[in-house]
Every structure is written in structure tokens, then in C-alpha cells.
Design a protein around this nucleic acid. Structure first.
Lengths: 234, 234
DNA sequence: CGTGTACTTGAATTACATCAAATGATGTGG
DNA sequence: CCACATCATTTGATGTAATTCAAGTACACG
């Protein structure tokens, strides 16, 4: 088995002022002047799919903002299997624990190639002295985490396997105009929904047969959102 | 069906300086002087069991600290049933959304008679101006919420029903010296674990038969923690 | 003392996990 | 470029666990 290169490529000092996702990100409130003169050591990194950004229990020295790609937060269960407890996308923040000086609580792994900014906890502390609204921004991030965690429980981990898979499609579709979903490997689907990969597989196949979803290419589906809605509430 | 009196009794202005649970609570960091001269309108309230402290989607005007008793946070599911997403005990804070000006995200209901302090969001904003460490305290609360939410998913909502019930006993026992657990109604147990009340009932009965637990009085059990540990990891 | 509510137990059914085997996709070395 | 190894996906057969529906019991309360 060949060991994959799992290191991130360094893309240079980021230009936060010009960041495409700045309006989504932590620093949306900060004035240009807040950045000036500070040696923040923020890094702009490129991660291949499957890279471990950090491990569970590792001391948290930095938090991360996603510029592109999808990241999963994984926790190990008492019996050895693992469960995906959250998915993070463009504009989301991970590793907030670091700001409080705590170790990371999950493993964070990229599911696709991703562009991610690494912000040392010390930078947050410095910036906070300049900008009193940063803490409010951070609290909003925490709130979003709680909200997503609760949704994960009630929406994706409750009810029959059929309903869960249907809700996963709806969740992935989000509020995009089209009805296209990019699914992942069955193993990951299973770890998200708390079912086995075989069950996940069977249900996806069943949806395909019943034309609730329509495979466009590998793991890309066009979805009948109305019927998914209906299935999701059984 | 008779409508119960669900209003809280007002117990007067609280004396935060002398509060038994102050070391657990939000204001543990604040100096005596921070309280002086502020008209904070904090209320000390007494809630009977089963009182709704706030509803889901209600505008959040205050947060609450639990001095005694247990509170459940409940969310309604698409199909109409409801799920308990968290249990809060002495020293815990609920309704943090209020600090951010957001509506409450759950219904909060007392499971026992409870003493609870109501702290208006405005008071937090005032105090924050005095004490810059308060926001850190608030962030820690958010972090605890996320942590508990993740534990709820991986620990109490994963695996067989037997394992979940076992883990619930362990969770309720916490790190108390004794091996005594105070359980709740089967309906609530079911809403916590994502199973039916019949299944919950059967498993509790089975544990009793197998002497893994021993009923002391109504819903009070002495537990064989070692065997519960073992069952919990199947 | 009757009535409503929660709890308990049983039997039938359904949903899911498990085990096993076949197929498909991907990458490697000859 | 092909043969082969490896890994993910798919499908089937079977057993088990949990839900559902139903009936009965215990208990609190007016």
C-alpha cells in the first residue's frame, strides 16, 4: 500500500482583503486597517482530498476557514467504528476549540481537494484587541455549530434508513436552484446516517429504480425533490 | 384534561454574590464590584416540573442559569414526533441564542421542580462592557453545548437500543461516587435515545431481571456500572 | 371508587445488520 | 497495453433487533 502525500501545499500569504469568501468568513466585519501592521502569519493552504487537517485530541493551535471544498468532522465510537458528526463547506470555520486553548474534539478530513486558510489562535487574540466585534462573530460560529449538530441528530440520525437517505439528499441539495446532488462514497454516507454501507447502497439503488433520483455521473444525481420530501417524513 | 399552572414563582432579586452555584455559573469570573450600581433585573425563579421555560422560535430576550433541577431541550421532527437533544443540570446555561439576538432554537422544559435565574440579554451586554472575560465564559458555554450535542449523537443515538439504554444510565450516573441513577418517564427515555417507549420499557425490564440494575423506588435504580460499561460497547 | 395516564407485556411484522459472493473501478508493474 | 491486485460498490440470502398494534396492569387524582 502506497502512502499518499497528505501534506498541504503552501500557497503563500493570503490576501484577506481580496478573499472571495470574505463576506462569509470570520473577518467580514474587520476594517482594512485592522489587518495593517499586524504580523498575523495566516497561511493559505491547498489540501488534496483525504487529507487529515487535524486529529482528535491534538492541541489546538489554529482555526481554519474553508475557501473551497468539503471537510468532514469525524469522531470515533466506543466500539471502534467512526461517525461523521458534521460537514463543513465554503465559508465555514473549523477548530474553534483552538481559540479557547482546548484540544481539537474531532478529526477533520477533507473530502475533496480544498483551499483552506490557517489562522493561529494568537492571531485571533491579537485581532480581538483591535476589533471588539470579532468575539461576536466567533459566537455566531459556535451557534452555527450547535445548530448543525442538532440538525444532524434530528434530521439525519432519526427515523428509517430510507427517510435518512432522502433527507441527506435534501440536505446536500441545500437551497441551490437546481436539483443536483453530489453524493460521496457509501462508507461516508453510512457514517453520516448511522447505518451500514450495504443499507445505504440498497436504498440509493432503490431510489434510482423508482426514479426518485437519476444518476448523471458517478455520485452525481438529479433529484425529485418533492418525492424526497415525502419520503423524508415517514 | 386540566391545564397545569405553568407559571414560575418569583422568588425576589437574586443575590449572585452568595449563589451556591456561582463557581459553576456564568458570573464566576466577575468581581463583586462588577455587580454594584448596575440595575440588571436578574430574576430568581421557581419552576414546577413540566414548565415550559421558552418555546422554539420565540424571540430570545434572556438566558437562564440552572440553580437546581433538570431541563430538557426539545426539538420537533418533520413527522410530528419530538426528540430531546440535550439535558441541562445545575450550573448549566440555556438560551445562549438570546445574547446574539436570535430566537430560541428549542423548547426548554423542566423535568423536575427547578430553581432558575433569568438574565436579560441586555444585562449580558452591560456586564460585558465591564468585564472583558465574560465573552470567553460565553464561548465556553457554546463549546460545552457543541460537545454535549456531539456526545448525544455518538453516545446516546448510536448502536443497539440495549447499548443506548446502558449508556444513558452511565450518562445519568455521571461521575457521582455512588451508583444511583434517577431515570425519567419511558416516553422521555425514548425521546432521548431515538427509540420507542415500548423498547425502552422492555430493556429496562430486562436489565432489572438480569440484575444489572436494581429498582430502589419509582425510577430510582442502583446500577452495576461495570456490566453497563460492557453492554454499552456492543 | 371510577377514570385517565403511564407503564408493562405479548405476538406479528418490518426494517436493518450481517455474512457472503459477484461485479465494477482504479492503479501498478510487467 | 494488458494482466493482476486492490478496493469500493452492488446484490442476495439469512438472522436478529426493533417497531407496531394490541391488551392488560399499576398508579395517581379528582
Amino acid at each position: 500500500m502506497k502512502v499518499k502525500k497528505i501534506l498541504a501545499a503552501w500557497r503563500g500569504e493570503p490576501q484577506c482583503e481580496k478573499c472571495q469568501v470574505r463576506h462569509l468568513a470570520l473577518f467580514s466585519d474587520l476594517a482594512e486597517s485592522d489587518f495593517m501592521g499586524l504580523h498575523l502569519h495566516i497561511e493559505d493552504l491547498e489540501f488534496p482530498a483525504g487529507t487529515i487537517i487535524y486529529h482528535s485530541d491534538e492541541p489546538g493551535r489554529a482555526l481554519f476557514t474553508i475557501r473551497s471544498g468539503v471537510v468532514k468532522l469525524v469522531q470515533c465510537l466506543p466500539n471502534g467504528t467512526q461517525r461523521i458528526v458534521r460537514l463543513l463547506r465554503q465559508g465555514a470555520t473549523l477548530g474553534l476549540e483552538a481559540v479557547l486553548g482546548e484540544p481539537y474534539r474531532h478529526a477533520a478530513i477533507t473530502m475533496q481537494d480544498a483551499l483552506i486558510c490557517r489562522i493561529p489562535a494568537t492571531a485571533i487574540h491579537q485581532l480581538n484587541a483591535q476589533s471588539p466585534t470579532l468575539y461576536t462573530q466567533l459566537m455566531r460560529r459556535w451557534q452555527q455549530s450547535v445548530e448543525q449538530a442538532d440538525e444532524w441528530l434530528t434530521f439525519l440520525s432519526t427515523g428509517t434508513a430510507r427517510a435518512r437517505v432522502a433527507r441527506l439528499f435534501l440536505h446536500l441539495n441545500g437551497d441551490s436552484g437546481d436539483a443536483i446532488c453530489q453524493l460521496f462514497g457509501r462508507e461516508d454516507v453510512a457514517a453520516i446516517l448511522g447505518i451500514t454501507s450495504e443499507t445505504a447502497c440498497r436504498i440509493v439503488a432503490e431510489f434510482s429504480r423508482d426514479k426518485v433520483i437519476n444518476a448523471l455521473s458517478s455520485n452525481r444525481f438529479e433529484c425529485d425533490l418533492l418525492r424526497l420530501e415525502e419520503i423524508s417524513s415517514n
